[in-house]
Design a protein around this nucleic acid. Sequence first.
DNA 1: AATATATTGATATAAATATATCCATATGAA
DNA 2: TTCATATGGATATATTTATATCAATATATT
Lengths: 256, 256
Amino acid sequence: MKNKNKKTVMSPAPSSVQKRKLIPKKTITSIEKNPEKLESEEVVKPSLSCVRRLPSYLQLLRALQADGHEYVSGTVLASVHHLAPVIVRKDLAFTGVTGTPRIGFQVTELIAAIERFLGWDNQNKAVLVGVGNLGSALLGYHGFENFGLQIVACFDNDPMKIDTWIRGCKVHSLDQLPRFIRRSHIVLGVLTVPAEAAQKTAERMVESGLLGIWNFTSVKLAVPANVVTQKEDLAEGLAVLSHRMQHVSKTLAIQQ
Amino acid sequence: MKNKNKKTVMSPAPSSVQKRKLIPKKTITSIEKNPEKLESEEVVKPSLSCVRRLPSYLQLLRALQADGHEYVSGTVLASVHHLAPVIVRKDLAFTGVTGTPRIGFQVTELIAAIERFLGWDNQNKAVLVGVGNLGSALLGYHGFENFGLQIVACFDNDPMKIDTWIRGCKVHSLDQLPRFIRRSHIVLGVLTVPAEAAQKTAERMVESGLLGIWNFTSVKLAVPANVVTQKEDLAEGLAVLSHRMQHVSKTLAIQQ
DNA sequence: AATATATTGATATAAATATATCCATATGAA
DNA sequence: TTCATATGGATATATTTATATCAATATATT
């Protein structure tokens, strides 16, 4: 049942399914290796929105896979997520997969491609700093493990909390952080301390060697250029919701 | 270090500070009331990104207010949030406030304007449905009250949970929802049930009369047009973080 | 076999968003 | 007073993102 165009590992398509021949794509790697990079040959990078959409495709793809589906069209992915099919196709193109006209994309291949693209093909270990309300909730929420993230230790500097167990995780003193990070080669931290402590704690995390901070505080962190921070602010979503609700009720009031 | 121009409540500018005269802005209302709406006179709506940024300004403004600052320039707001000053000025313009050259914006006025714009000037009551890990975390997290949201009741359909108290909130049976909503005139619901139950539960919420659903599940909800849903997906932020970290490490590897 | 159709991937266009530029103005300094 | 400067607001431009369009192609249908 193997395709004659050998696709090494991933994609044993049904015998009759033939991949469309492609004009070789300019990949980031090829451009970066090429010193005489021309202005006209722009490197097309995925938009932020594209990256944000990928997990939702992934989630649906896994459900399809569990359901025994082998192929899925961009059209289907699009309709579930209320998106235009073109958007899905363009998003998926960034992961490097190619679909087959009239057939769609191979589910398994697509899952692997998205995971690889996002760096979720290996489980990334992380520490969590700040075991308050939100912190302990995140500790208890194991959903991130579907997204390549595993929280393996937590830290706090409240003496009352240190050495207690929260959601199956022993709370360590923040002083232990540098040693722990160095020993474990962890690069990612989840920051869930109160706003007042955010910047200072982030600095300690950076000093300890973390290269990425998932920031659940309301503070915009100042960090060195080699450190990536991602601010997760629930107020943003709430603002959009509130604003849209206002708009809907206004519209309805006018129509009546 | 208080300013000598004592402020009453809202916005009496200091005698010498004179607001710039403005070309009257086309407001949504004026256009909508005007039947011969021209194509050229477009209604400029705030972008989604603008709405998402407003809460962060609000947060900073409150801190400034607590610190006794009476005025703040867009430049300052911008630098804290690592944004271009123009963006801040344009964002703030949507709330209807006007600043004063060389002075900036009046903090109190700006806070009120943003709150009004987002509908956060009155506390909006909400119910929470699904008292699992995430649900109970959100119940315990009272930070939303700064953003006009107050969760006043919670519901679940697990008999083991019903009538217990979680984070100071009594868990009601989901069957009670319609009656509760009707009695209390609540329009907003927070959905924190497992993915499998999401769509069905959302339908019950809509039938009960809710007009907005803040959706913390991984499911894209299908709801009637008059209902607003906002999907809050932590995986999105994690995807951006992972992707950016990959990119940074690649870049550094190349530079070395 | 011939034709119709769903689909992908590429290119082209449109829309949304961000950024640059300019001018008016309020303040402080010379 | 006069001038320099920081700032807001408006307009213009650039960039990014989304959408439309179309040729190529694999399958199903007639």
